[in-house]
Design a protein around this nucleic acid. Structure first.
Lengths: 148, 148
DNA sequence: ACTATATAGTTCGATATCGTACCAATAAGG
DNA sequence: CCTTATTGGTACGATATCGAACTATATAGT
């Protein structure tokens, strides 16, 4: 393979990795101690998509092993941000539901991160970020499918 | 803040996070057991930029805490992929140098990941990925500077 | 129905990551 | 010089992540 071509892809994934670290650090600096980006992301996902999903569905949505999702959900349970109910359609499974404190946690987190997003938006307009999304999603879909 | 605007940025960072996980998993599946993406990335960086850099310089380049870089470098030392020499310009500091096994490790890793990159390139041409780099770098630079 | 296989979730152990505290060497200010 | 503050690196403890093995339930094939 061409050195330049390889370097483009390596640079891309390097930027991705650094951005992931930076965004995670930025988010967690604004969250109450003991809560991490995955905690927020799961709550946010339950709001945006809908609650009542199974742990495995959530693990797939975030591309993490199911053991990791178990751990994240346990943290949310400890804080009372979600509750588990049996899955009426499958006795092995559970469903995850938001609680009122969980919704408040999301609202507080969003309120405290909003100013930073506003600052970022001044430097990089939302339209420019939106323009990146299709390509990123395309790469993500390809890589996800490629794993098998 | 506008819900749609916020959602654009959240979606962006969500894609970033998932891509980081997928790329890391893909890379580590091809590396010898016990070696991680940061191990490879540091070696690759020492080749691309140049060796003889200090641990702190490397930590800043990858945006990780210096304790994390210490840990990563210890792993590379254990494998004999790098060696440390005192920094002649600063008695507190060290410099990191590649060894021949370290260079071989990089070559082997690249050889084994190249086919996957080639497949990815069929789906997403290198030019399209290259087109994303400036915006990603811009966002990364902004977020890096913003931390203070 | 019965056995074999697959799937959802947890437990457990290994390790990567990171913050705090610490040590040693440098730099800065008198 | 001498004190104080800063900086490069490490040690240590806490926790996030993840693979392997396990349990319980569901599905498939006969």
């Amino acid at each position: 393979m061409d050195n330049d071509t390889r370097h483009i892809f390596f640079s891309f994934f390097n930027e991705i990795g650094i951005l992931a670290q930076l965004s995670r650090a930025a988010m967690e600096a604004r969250l109450p101690k003991g809560l991490t980006l995955p905690h927020f992301s799961v709550i946010n996902h339950l709001i945006r998509v809908r609650d009542g999903q199974t742990p495995l569905t959530l693990a797939k949505a975030f591309q993490v092993p199911k053991t990791t999702m178990t751990h994240t959900l346990n943290g949310l349970l400890d804080h009372g941000f979600v509750e588990m109910r049996p899955n009426p359609e499958d006795g092995r499974s559970k469903t995850v539901w938001l609680t009122d404190p969980g919704r408040r946690f999301r609202e507080d987190a969003i309120r405290s991160i909003d100013p930073e997003i506003a600052d970022l938006q001044k430097a990089i307009p939302a339209e420019r970020v939106a323009a990146l999304l299709p390509a990123l999603a395309e790469i993500r879909v390809f890589m996800d499918a490629y794993r098998d």
